[in-house]
Simulated assay, not measured.
Amino acid sequence: MTTHRDHTDTTTTDGPEPAATLTTPGFVDAHIHPDKTTWGSTWLSREPVSSLSDLIAADLAAQLSADEDVETRAFRILDQAVRNGTMAMRAHVDVSSELGLRNVHGVRAAAERLKGVLDVQIVAFPQFGMLTNPGTLDLMEQALGEGADHVGGIDPVGLEGDLEGHLGAIFSLAEKHGRDLDIHLHDQGPDALAQIREIARRTLAAGMRGRVTIAHGFAVCDTEEPDLPATLDAMAEAGVWLATCALGDSPVPTLDLMERHGVRVALGSDGIRDSWSPFGTGSMVDRAHLLGYRTGARTDAELERCLRLATTSGAELVGAEAVLGYEGPGSPDRVEFAVPDAARLVVERPAPLRVVRGGRTI
Rank of each mutant, 00 (worst) to 15 (best):
A194N: 13
A192C: 10
D227C: 00
I214E: 02
F171A: 00
D222F: 06
D182R: 06
A174V: 03
D227M: 00
Q195S: 11
P190R: 02
G210Q: 04
D227L: 00
R197I: 13
F171E: 01
A169P: 06
E224A: 15
A236N: 05
D222Q: 02
E224G: 14
T213G: 12
I196K: 02
G189S: 14
E198C: 11
L185D: 03
T231R: 01
D187E: 04
A169W: 05
E224C: 14
L193A: 00
D233W: 08
A219I: 06
G189Q: 08
A236M: 03
A234K: 01
G168R: 06
Q188L: 15
A206I: 07
L173I: 02
T223V: 13
Q188P: 09
A234G: 05
C221G: 06
D182P: 15
P229H: 07
I214K: 00
H216L: 04
D180M: 13
F218D: 04
I170L: 10
R201V: 12
C221A: 07
A200F: 10
H216F: 09
P226S: 03
F218H: 06
A230K: 05
S172L: 07
L204C: 13
A174S: 14
E237A: 11
A206C: 09
L204I: 14
S172R: 13
T231W: 00
R211W: 12
D227S: 04
L181S: 11
K176V: 11
G178H: 08
A194C: 11
L185P: 05
A169T: 01
V220C: 01
R201M: 14
G168F: 07
T213Q: 12
Q188E: 15
I199E: 05
A215I: 00
L193H: 01
R179K: 04
M235Q: 01
P226F: 03
H216S: 01
